[in-house]
Simulated scan of single mutants.
Amino acid sequence: MFLLEMATLLLGIGFIAAGTIQSRKTGQKKWHIFTAAGIVPVLISVFLFICTIWLLYGIQIREPETEPYFETDIAGDDWRTFRAYSEDLHLDDAGTLIFCLSPLDGKNGYAVYDSASGAREGSLLWEPEKEADDMFKIQLKDLDNDGIKEIGISMTDGQVIWYHYREELKCTWPENKGGCFEKID
C-alpha cells in the first residue's frame, strides 16, 4: 500500500515540477495545466496514506469484547442462567440450607450450588458404571432424624443413593470433591 502511495505522490510531484519548469522556461501559461494535473495525484496519495494509517492503527469503531465465562464468576441474581439447574432443595425447615443441582458433564454426578449465592458447595458423585434415572425426581428425606434432610438420587437399576449434608465440611470443595455432602453407604 505504501508503494502505491509513494508512486502516486512522485507522479504528482513530477507533474507539478514539470509544469512549473516549463512555464518559467518558456514563459507560457499553457504549462500550468501540468501543475494543476499534478495536484490530483498528490491529493489521492494523501487520501490513501490517511486510510492506510487509519486501518493499521485501528482507529475504526470496535465492538466491546466479551469476557470469557469462568465458573468462579457465578454471583448475583443471574447466576442460574449459565447452566441447567434443578428446583431449590430445602434441606431444613428453617430455610437456611437451600441448594440446587446441576448435572456434571460426565453424567456421573451432580454439582451442588447454594441457591442464595450461587457458590459451588460440592458434588454428589457415584460410580461411573451407574446412571441416574432422569424419570424420577430427586428425593428428600430425614433418614437420621437430625432435622436435615438427605438427598436421594434414583439410579436406573432401582437403587437410591443417599447423600448427607455435613456443616463441618463446608468450604472444602474443590479439594474435597464431595464438598459438604457425604455419600451414605
Rank of each mutant, 00 (worst) to 15 (best):
F2L: 08
L4H: 15
E5F: 07
A7E: 14
A7D: 14
T8G: 12
L9H: 09
L10P: 10
L11V: 14
L11S: 12
L11Y: 08
I13G: 13
A17W: 04
G19I: 00
I21H: 15
Q22A: 13
S23L: 03
K25V: 06
K25H: 10
T26Q: 04
K29Y: 11
K30P: 09
W31S: 13
W31I: 07
H32E: 04
I33Q: 15
T35G: 15
T35N: 13
G38E: 00
I39N: 08
V40I: 15
P41H: 04
I44G: 07
F47K: 02
L48I: 03
T52D: 10
L55T: 05
L56G: 11
G58N: 11
Q60V: 01
R62F: 13
P64K: 15
E71L: 00
D73M: 13
D73V: 06
I74M: 10
A75T: 15
D77I: 06
R80Q: 09
T81Q: 14
T81D: 15
F82D: 14
Y85K: 01
Y85T: 05
L89V: 07
H90T: 08
H90D: 00
A94D: 12
G95C: 02
G95E: 03
L97Q: 08
L97P: 05
L101T: 11
L101I: 08
P103G: 06
P103W: 02
D105T: 09
G106R: 09
G106W: 07
G106M: 10
G109E: 06
Y110K: 04
Y110F: 13
Y110P: 02
D114R: 04
D114G: 06
S115P: 04
S115C: 01
A116C: 08
A116Y: 13
S117C: 08
A119S: 03
R120D: 00
W126P: 07
W126M: 07
P128I: 03
K130V: 06
D134R: 15
M135I: 02
I138G: 02
I138H: 10
K141V: 02
K141H: 08
K141M: 10
L143V: 07
I148A: 01
I151M: 14
I153H: 01
S154T: 14
S154C: 11
S154R: 09
S154E: 12
M155D: 07
T156D: 13
G158A: 04
I161K: 05
W162P: 03
Y163A: 11
H164F: 05
Y165K: 14
Y165P: 11
Y165F: 14
E167D: 12
L169S: 01
K170C: 03
C171W: 14
T172V: 08
T172M: 00
P174S: 01
P174L: 03
N176Q: 05
G178V: 07
F181H: 02
E182G: 03
D185V: 00
